[in-house]
Write a protein that binds this DNA or RNA. Structure first.
Lengths: 217, 217, 217, 217
DNA sequence: TATGAATGAGTCTTCATTCAT
DNA sequence: AATGAATGAAGACTCATTCAT
C-alpha cells in the first residue's frame, strides 16, 4: 500500500480503553483487598482477583508482577492517606488539643466501624510473621506516625495544663487501645459492640479517659 | 462445641507404658502452633510440623485427621485453661475487686509479653474471615468469658463504691484495650514497647485508669 | 522448499520512500538470531526479539506470522548465500583444487571464528529433533551442497594427480571435521582454541591433511 | 520405650517398593533423556517424563528438585563413565599408542552410531547458551579429558617415533573431528553416512590420518 | 505501520492426603 | 505406632498470539 492513507486524523475521541487502563491498577487493588480479606492472602486466587477486577488472571500481571507485589502495593495504597490525615489533624489541633483528640477518636471510631477499613490491619496482623517487612512498613508508616501525632497532642494538652502531666505513651495507649479492641470484637470476633453507636462509645471512652474511675468525694 | 474433633483416644485405661506416644498429640500441637505462627496457617507445611514434633509428615495424621483439625485442636487446647483461670480469678476477687483487677492486669501483661501466648489470638485474627466458626469459638470461649469476669469485678467495685458507677463495658474496654494494643505492637509490629517493663506498664495503666487525665486543682 | 513462508511482501514496486520499513524484516531476523542463540528457540521471547529489533512485540507479527516462521525465515536467510558461495568457489577452483581448498578452509575458519556465523548450525543441531524439516532443509541446502563442492575439488585434485586416489568422502570428512570440531569447542564449550589463530590452524590442518602423521624415512 | 521390644527380625523379605525406589532415579533419568532428546529441554514436560518413568509428575520431584536439576543430573550420570574410560584406555595404551588410537576410534565410532549416546552432546550444544555451567561442565569433564588422553597417546607415539613430531593439538583435531562430524550428519541431519559401516570408516580415517593425501612417488 | 492491552492455554512446582509395608 | 513412597488437585506465572485503535 504505497500511497499514503493516513489522513492525519488520530484520536477522534479519546480511546475508551485508555481510560480503562488508567483505572485498572486501582480496580485490581480493590479486587485484591476484597479477595485477601475474604480468603486470606494465601487462599486468594489470582484468577479470582482478576475476575473481580473484570480482567483475566494474566491481565493482573500486566500491572503487578506478583501476588506479593500486589499485597505490598495494596498496603501502601491504603495506608498512605491515613497517616497523612492523622498528622494534619494533629498539627491543626495543637491549639485545642482536647477537641482535636475527641474529633480524632470519633473519626477513628467511624472509620473502624467499616469493615473495609479494618481489612488492611487485619491482613498485616495475619501476615506479619511471614512478611516482616510488611509489619515494619505498617509500623513505621502508620502506627508510629499516628502515635507520634497523638503524643504531640497529649504533650500540647499537658503544656496547656488541660490534663495533668501523665506519661504521653500511657495516654496514647489508653486512647487508642479501647478503640482498637472494640474494632477487633466487631470485625474479627463478629460480636456486636459499642462501635454500633460511635457517639456513645466516644462519650464513655472520654469520660473514663478524662475522669478516670476513681470514686471521688 | 463446633470445633471438637474426635481423635478417638479416650481409652479409659491410659497406656502408661508408652509415655512418648501419650505425649505426641501435645508435641504436635506445639509444633503446629509454632509453624502456624511463623508462616501462617496456609503456608505452614504438614511436613514441617511433623519434623518439628520429631515425627514424619504421615505421623501427624495418626493423631489428627487433617490440617484444619490440627488448627481446631490447637485453639481448643490453648484456650480452655485461660478462660477458666480468668473466671476463677474473678470469683475469688470479688472480695477485693481492685486488687484482683490489678493482679489480673499484671498477669495478663506478663503472659502477653510471651509471643507464644499471643500466637493463638493472632491466628484467630488472621483466619476469622475464612473460618467464622473459629471466631465464634474464640469469642464465646475466651473473650466473652474474660469480659464477663471483668464485668463482674467492675460491678463489684462499683457496688463496693470503690469506683464511681461508670458503664462496666466501657471500663472493660479501658482495662483490656491498652494491654491488647501493646501486645500487638510488640509481637505483630515488632516494635519494642511498654510490655518490656510490665510493672511500670501496669502502674501507668492503672494511674490513668483510676485517676483519668483530668487536671485537678 | 518446505520452509518457505509467504510473508506477502512481493510488491513489484518496492516502497523506496520508507527505508526503515524496508529494513525491518532483516533487523528482526538479526534480533531473532541473537535471541535464539542466547536463549534457545523455546526460551526466546517474542517481546525480546521485538525490543532488540527496535519495535514492539506485536510489531514482529506484522512481518512474520509466528515464532516458527521467524525461525524458518531466519535459517533460510542465513543459509542461502553460504551454499552458493561454496559452489561458486568449487567451480572456480577446479583449475587449481589444492589452492581452492586452502582458500576454502581459511575462509571457513575465519567465518567460524565469528559466533554469529555458527549460530545457525547450533540452532539446527538443537532443534533437529523436534523440527525434522529443519534438519532436512539444512542438510540439503547447506551440508550436501558444501560436501558436493568439496567432493568436486577432491576429485579434481585426484584427477590432476595432486593427491593420491583416496575416497573423496573420507577426504571431505578429514577436511571439514577438524574445523567444525574446533568451532564447537570455541563457541559451544566456551573453550579457547585454535580458531584464535586461523592461519596457524590452517597450516597445521593442511600439514596433517596432506602429509599425514606417518613417520617417514 | 523402656522394655526392649525389637526382636531384631527386620526385612523378612525385602519390600518390593524399596527396590523400585532404589531404581527410580535411574529410570527417571532415562525417561528425561528420552523426552529431552525428542522435544528439547524446554518443550519436554515433567508430566511426560514422569509417565515415561512410570510415576506421576509429582513423583519426579521426589527424586529431583527441579527440571534443571534433572538436566544436570542427567548430564553428570551419562558423562562420568565416558571420561573415565577414555583415560583408562589412554593409560593402558601408551605402550602401543597407535593400536590404542585405533581401538579408541573404533569404539567411539560404534558408540556414536547409537543415537542415545549422541543425545547428551546434542543437548549440551543446544543449551550451552542458556546454561553456561553446563557447557563448562561438559568441557572440563568430557572434552578436556578426552583431549588430554588423546594428547598423551599422540605424545607417546611421537616419543616412540611411530609418527612424526606434529603438533598434538592438530593431531587430536584431525582424529576426533571427522568422527564427530560424521555423527552429526547421521543423528542431527538424518543423513546416512559412513557411520553405517564403522570398520570401513575407521580404515579410511586412519589411512588419511596416517598417510595423508599427498601423492607420493 | 505500529502498539498497548488483553487473554487462553500451558507448565512447573507445591502440598495435603493416602497407603503399603 | 510409624513412615517412605506416591499422587491428585490446585495455583502462580509465562508467553505466543490477537485486536482495537
Amino acid at each position: 500500500m504505497p500511497l499514503s492513507h493516513s489522513t492525519g486524523k488520530k484520536n477522534p475521541g479519546a480511546p475508551r480503553w485508555k481510560r480503562r487502563a488508567a483505572l485498572r491498577p486501582e480496580e485490581i487493588l480493590d479486587a485484591a483487598l476484597a479477595e485477601f480479606t475474604e480468603n486470606g492472602f494465601d487462599a486468594a486466587r489470582m484468577e479470582d482477583i482478576g475476575q473481580r477486577a473484570g480482567i483475566s488472571k494474566a491481565g493482573v500481571y500486566l500491572y503487578f508482577p506478583s501476588k506479593s507485589a500486589l499485597l505490598e502495593a495494596l498496603i501502601e495504597a491504603k495506608v498512605a492517606p491515613l497517616a497523612r490525615n492523622a498528622e494534619n489533624l494533629a498539627a491543626a489541633g495543637e491549639a485545642n488539643p482536647l477537641a482535636a483528640l475527641r474529633l480524632l477518636a470519633r473519626t477513628a471510631a467511624l472509620l473502624l466501624a467499616d469493615a473495609r477499613n479494618f481489612a488492611v490491619p487485619r491482613l498485616v496482623i495475619g501476615l506479619s510473621g511471614r512478611f516482616p517487612e510488611l509489619a515494619d512498613y505498617y509500623r513505621t508508616h502508620v502506627v508510629d506516625i499516628a502515635v507520634a501525632a497523638l503524643t504531640r497532642l497529649f504533650n500540647a494538652a499537658i503544656a496547656q495544663q488541660l490534663i495533668r502531666p501523665i506519661d504521653p505513651a500511657a495516654a496514647v495507649r489508653a486512647f487508642i487501645g479501647p478503640l482498637f479492641f472494640e474494632a477487633m470484637r466487631l470485625h474479627v470476633l463478629r460480636g456486636d459492640g459499642a462501635l454500633g453507636n460511635p457517639e456513645q462509645l466516644i462519650d464513655q471512652h472520654f469520660d473514663v479517659l478524662m475522669n478516670g474511675m476513681e470514686q471521688r468525694a
